[in-house]
Design a protein around this nucleic acid. Structure first.
Length: 1185
RNA sequence: GCGGCUGUGGCGAAAUUGGCAGACGCACUAGACUUAGGAUCUAGCGGGCAACCAUGGGGGUUCAAGUCCCUCCAGCCGCACCA
């Protein structure tokens, strides 16, 4: 552009100075900001603070699409605005850089996830820089950096070393618990702990060895290791948190998830349930998020009730219900605990229902019912989570034969089991009141159980649509009769407490969160094992860095990847805590399994269970299995097979142990893709164990047995034979104790380290604190920094983290609050969830293979017909293209007579990448032809369209994603229109919280607006137009109303409306031909947060030496906005009929009189006197007739 | 089924406390300039010839309702046998 030829000078495009060239000025200012560290946060500072934060991004390989920066732009506007307002702004960015995708990639390619992550971050960073964000990059953090995760581990150690004291209602150091135990034992201690904690006295405690004490303390610590049922995902090879499982499959990847008992680290978030719930009230977060969290915590107030189980022999003859027993039976420990929120309905209880897994089921079932109950329990236990969720409507259950006694009226009530009762909630048992609970009602109806109404009045009929369980007054309920539900609840709670058969209790749905993942790319858990018990490393030993390993998959034994590390051991443990001499046997120990690092699943019991399962399967062979078994036995293959042999945690159908050949027969159900994935995973693990897996379908075995045997024979001959000792070794559990393996290369005084890592949410639970003092090497953040920055003033991100990150981070923050590190109970005052930007996918349709021409209904045209692929543009009427196709076909195939040609057209609809689709939805036909060729759709292609060589696509709004070919890359938008246009346009699209589709066509309006801004400063010849004239009232009014509106808009996060306001302002100033310095100077400052580059450029052009980023936001002055007159709309009966101009301060009576006197209004009055006249000052006049 | 959010022109939307519905922008139409236009400028643009009718449907409160109340419907998101 430097030496433009003279004759082109007159062409507007070639005036360099006059034209707004975003690409040049944006790069220029981004460099200046970087070089001058313009946005480096000052600390310490006397200014008031403002902390504005974006949710921690995971740097994915796909890079940003235009939806991602939406929130970043909004926060950047706020950050820049607050700087102009004189605040010291903390506006940082960093990366949640541990995570599954990088690890999956590592597993596949062997590339270290750190490298993948680094590359992705570099790309992410570049894309962010393109948009001109004002982040203080000197505070960037990455969760995968050891200097960051050192502190994540440090917090973990703190959590491990604290317990929750319900009396002080906060976390306290474990030492205070030890002290309480040594003084009083554990009975009086009000602590949040495991359910099954055994009571002990001070004497007993003091007699325990250090190790026994440590073991007991694990039941109290806020981070603990225990055997729990977890969501095990074989496809991902790890456990998942509850909120990472959706509809029975993993949220990431969609792999099936099964319930499995494993030793796992957990966080005792339940201790904080009440505070997490209560403090929601004070938060300025969206209702939706708060509701989701409330629901997740799931507080219910109710009553714990004890039902005695009737001593059966003495009641054997009592069949009828409500027959008072002669003497209340006093069975020892024969009680069922029930949690109910409706203790007021206790007179309506007609049966109890236990979860099939309930521990008492076995004990109470009568011999007569045993078979049925066992069958039912078996059925329920084998039902997967997915199946259970799928059919909630089918009522199933079984009578145990046992009875319980209603503690209020001594009525005998039958005890049932039913899968609608969840083992994990409450006590796993419910008192069923079919008249007041719809599930109980359904169950009672289905099994013909009695129903006693205990409420009467409106809406109390459970069979009716409008049933309200809490409506009406109590009946059939003794002393409760006549009370409403609320008072009955209170009265009955009081009564059961007096009777000693129950007590009021608050129940929470939230579970402790599983904290370990069997993965490599996460924070190592800073724990080592000594004599099977977990101890945390000393602070001085942190960070515990991720070791180098050769591969990123689980080991052959199914251990987490970290078990591959050489020397994954702690050197001599810290002194002091928990290292007595005594090696307590811990015979009753729940934690025998804690002998093993937490991945370990196969304890003796488990092993036995698998063996039993195998035996069972052996008895119930499928036909195909039976056939193959006889063939394998009968054929002289030279090797011996075993069937249903346990290998690792799997049961292989047929195994030859000498060649390590496994033959699997699947029942045809394995066509399902999920099962297939699981099979592949299973095969992979078995291969890692050195096995060869061959798979046949039932069909193959039953119909082509000879071929199957032939294949097996060939396989066997290929495989080397092993010596028999190996085969024998399979008799012992194959999952070896990893601790003992690791012991092999332990030095003296060395202990094996935990091999699982922390979950994705660990780092993000506190990163916002690290930004306050990101470089601190001696603390996670200094006290000064924490005291000054306090909390996040504005937090912006997607709503998908409602019950994950947003709950866990609140939990950790409260923990740090208890310890006195932070001063705020909540870390984010205001939370906004930005909406999604959707993509607008493009589709085209072809009539090709899907085309049917019929001479008559039963007769299709022969295949040799000349039948091209018709690409039929949208926007054509049916008759238009059908005729065209008809004519064309007849021309090509003269032998077809038109009269017997019948059309039955079906389209093939395909997506096409939106990159080349034009604003008018048209696309070059060659793009479509190329697409069809690539997808091997053969034949001559014919375009049917109104526009030559262009096809009009169909558009549909969908989620923006690569697979839908509708992604818009912000880099492309920036290079075409500039970052300022992108920023303003994203805001202009609509309210921040709402989802809205990206619209490429309307971006031109915003682009034009910025050029109009430029034109207020420069004329066409590139001459500055600024004048020093004093502004007039009109100009001042335009400016000040804009200042006022923009300020209000930013304060209420309504960014779309301020873009409109800017447009109005520029339109009006242009109409006024205003080029006055004072006006434009202020205008630039208020525009700067939205369009910082152009604002800086023009600000500099005005002669300002300092950048605009720290200018002072102009203060609007009400006096410029005052109108001297107001144009009143005069309405008759609410409809505007006329307008009249009156002085703004005119007396209301006078306004009324003049309005009524006007010719226009007299006409409308038609001689009648108005009933009433309302005059709202400077708003409206309404005449009521 | 339960909970939350959202329904306004052809499209994105505005109307902050009940007071002139549709600001601002896109698309569209006509015109100007131009060798040219996917550039720029000017004008028009909810429907209806009009009276009038229009903020998802119906009802209500009010002098006045997109806004408040009741009720129904649709879409999106979340939860889902929670005793």
């Amino acid at each position: 552009m430097v030496n433009a030829p003279n004759f082109l000078i007159s062409h507007p495009n070639y005036f360099i100075m006059s034209e707004y060239k975003p690409q040049e000025i944006e790069k220029k200012w981004q460099k200046i900001w970087k070089d001058n560290q313009t946005f480096k946060t000052e600390f310490p500072s006397k200014k008031p603070k403002y902390y504005v934060l974006d949710m921690f991004p995971y740097p994915s390989g796909a890079g940003l699409h235009v939806g991602h920066p939406l929130g970043y732009i909004a926060t950047d506007i706020v950050a820049r605005y607050k700087r102009l307002k004189g605040y010291n702004v903390l506006h940082p960015m960093g990366y949640d850089s541990f995570g599954l995708p990088a690890e999956q990639y590592a597993v596949q390619t062997g590339q270290h996830p750190a490298i993948t992550t680094e590359n992705n971050i570099a790309r992410y960073h570049e894309q962010l820089d393109n948009i001109g964000f004002s982040y203080d990059w000197s505070r960037e953090v990455r969760t995968s950096n050891p200097d960051f995760y050192k502190w994540t581990q440090w917090i973990f150690v703190k959590i491990f070393n604290h317990w929750y004291n319900k009396e002080s209602d906060k976390a306290e150091p474990i030492e205070t618990l030890y002290k309480k135990f040594s003084e009083n034992g554990n009975v009086k201690v009000k602590a949040v702990c495991d359910e099954n904690t055994e009571p002990f006295s001070a004497q007993e405690w003091n007699a325990f060895s250090e190790e026994q004490k440590h073991e007991i303390s694990l039941k109290y610590r806020l981070a603990y290791l225990s055997n729990t049922f977890v969501n095990w995902c074989p496809g991902l090879g790890t456990v998942l948190a509850n909120e990472e499982v959706k509809d029975g499959v993993s949220e990431r990847g969609g792999f099936p998830v099964e319930r499995k008992e494993m030793a796992q680290w957990s966080m005792r978030i339940t201790a904080y349930a009440e505070r997490l719930l209560k403090d929601l009230d004070g938060l300025d977060w969206s209702d939706s998020i708060k509701e989701q969290q409330r629901y997740w915590i799931g507080k219910s107030k109710g009553c714990m009730l004890t039902f005695q189980i009737a001593d059966l022999p003495s009641f054997k003859n009592l069949e009828g219900l409500n027959t008072p027993p002669l003497t209340p039976p006093q069975g020892e420990g024969n009680t069922i605990s029930v949690f109910t929120t409706r203790v007021d309905t206790i007179y309506g209880v007609t049966y109890l229902t236990l979860a099939p897994e309930h521990e008492l089921v076995d004990k109470i079932t009568t011999p007569e019912q045993k078979a049925k109950v066992n069958a039912y329990v078996h059925y329920a236990k084998n039902k997967s989570e997915l199946d259970r969720q799928a059919d909630v409507k089918t009522v199933t259950g079984e009578f145990t034969g046992a009875y319980a006694i209603n503690p209020l009226n001594n009525a005998l009530i039958p005890i049932w089991i039913g899968e609608y009762v969840l083992a994990g909630y409450g006590t796993g048992a419910v008192m069923a009141v079919p008249s007041s609970d719809t599930r109980d009602y359904a169950f009672a109806k289905h099994f013909n159980l009695p129903i006693i109404n205990v409420q009467e009045g409106e809406k109390t009929d459970i069979t009716k649509e409008d049933f309200d369980p809490k409506a009406g007054t109590m009946i059939n309920s003794d002393f409760l009769n006549g009370m409403d539900v609320k008072s009955a609840l209170d009265a009955m709670t009081k009564r059961v407490e007096e009777l000693g058969v129950g007590y009021g209790k608050v129940n929470y749905k939230i579970r402790d969160s599983i904290f370990s993942r069997q993965r490599y790319w996460g924070e190592p858990i800073p724990v080592y094992f000594k004599n099977g018990l977990p101890y945390t490393l000393d602070e001085s030993q942190l960070p515990l860095e991720l070791p180098k390993i050769d591969e990123y998959k689980p080991t052959a034994n199914g251990e987490p990847p970290l078990a591959r590390a050489k020397n994954w051991v702690a050197s001599s443990p810290p002194l002091g805590e928990g290292f007595g001499e005594g090696l307590g046997e811990g015979s009753n120990s729940q934690l025998q399994n804690a002998n093993l690092p937490s991945w370990q699943t196969t304890d003796a019991i488990k092993w036995k269970a698998i063996k039993e399962k195998a035996r069972e399967l052996r008895k119930n062979q499928t036909d195909a299995e039976q056939t193959l078994w006889y063939a394998l036995r009968g054929e002289q293959l030279g090797v011996k097979f075993r069937r249903q042999q346990v290998i690792d945690v799997f049961i292989a159908d047929f195994v030859n142990l000498n060649t390590k050949l496994i033959i699997e027969v699947d029942g045809g159900i394995h066509l399902d893709s999920d099962v297939k994935k699981y099979d592949e995973y299973r095969t992979e693990v078995l291969q890692n164990l050195g096995y060869t897996v061959v798979r046949f379908t039932n069909e193959e075995v039953e119909n082509h047995l000879d071929r199957v045997i032939e294949k097996i024979r060939n396989k066997i001959s290929e495989l080397p034979k092993l010596n028999p000792t190996f085969a024998n070794s399979q008799k012992t559990p194959p999952l070896t104790n990893s601790a003992s393996i690791s012991q092999n290369h332990l030095g003296e005084g060395k202990y094996p380290l935990e091999t699982s890592t922390m979950p994705g949410w660990a780092g993000s639970s506190w990163y916002f604190l690290r930004y306050m003092d990101a470089k601190n090497e001696s603390e996670f953040a200094s006290k000064d920094a924490l005291d000054y920055w306090q909390d996040v003033d504005l937090y912006l991100g997607g709503s998908e983290h409602a019950t994950g990150h947003l709950l866990y981070s609140r939990f950790w923050h409260k923990f740090l609050y208890d310890l006195g590190y932070v001063k705020t109970k909540e870390y984010a005052k205001k939370l906004i969830n930005q909406g999604m930007i959707q993509g607008v996918s493009a589709f085209f349709r072809v009539v090709g293979s899907g085309l049917n021409y019929k001479r008559d209904i039963n007769d299709e045209l022969p295949d040799d017909i000349d039948r091209p692929v018709y690409i039929v543009s949208y926007g054509l009427q049916n008759n238009e293209y059908i005729d065209l196709i008809k004519q064309d076909l007849l021309k090509r195939n003269p032998k077809i007579a038109e009269s017997n040609l019948e059309f039955n057209i079906s389209f093939g609809i395909h997506r096409i990448d939106i990159t080349n689709v034009d604003i008018d939805n048209s696309i070059d036909i060659n793009e479509i032809v190329d697409f069809l060729e690539r997808n091997e759709i053969k034949g001559e292609k014919i375009l049917i369209s109104k526009i030559p060589n262009r096809y009009i696509c169909n558009r549909e709004v969908e989620k923006m994603s690569k697979s839908k070919l509708n992604v818009v890359n912000p880099d492309d938008v920036v290079s075409k229109y500039g970052a300022d246009t992108l920023r303003m346009f994203e805001m202009f699209l609509g309210p921040l919280e709402l989802s809205k589709p990206w619209s490429t066509s309307s971006i031109s309006g915003v682009s034009r607006f910025l050029r109009n801004v430029w034109k207020m400063f420069y004329d066409e010849s590139g001459k500055l137009l600024l004048t020093d004239e004093a502004p007039n009232d009109k100009e001042l009014k335009v400016l000040h109303k804009t200042i006022k509106k923009v300020e209000e808009d930013i304060e209420r996060f309504s960014f779309n409306t301020s873009v409109s306001t800017f447009m109005v302002c520029v339109n009006e100033l242009s109409d006024l031909k205003c080029h006055k310095r004072t006006i434009l100077s202020d205008f630039l400052i208020i525009l700067a947060p939205y369009a910082p580059h152009i604002a800086e450029e023009l600000w500099e052009a005005m002669g300002n030496k300092n950048g605009i980023s720290y200018a002072i936001f102009p203060k609007y002055d009400e006096k410029y906005l005052v109108e001297s007159s107001f144009e009143y709309p005069i309405s008759i009966n609410g409809k505007v009929r006329h307008k009249m101009n009156f002085p703004a301060n005119m007396d209301l009576k006078e306004v009324e009189n003049q309005a009524l006197a006007s010719a226009e209004i007299i006409k409308w009055l038609e001689g009648k006197a108005p009933k009433k006249v309302i005059v709202v000052p400077n708003k409206i006049v309404n005449v009521v007739l």
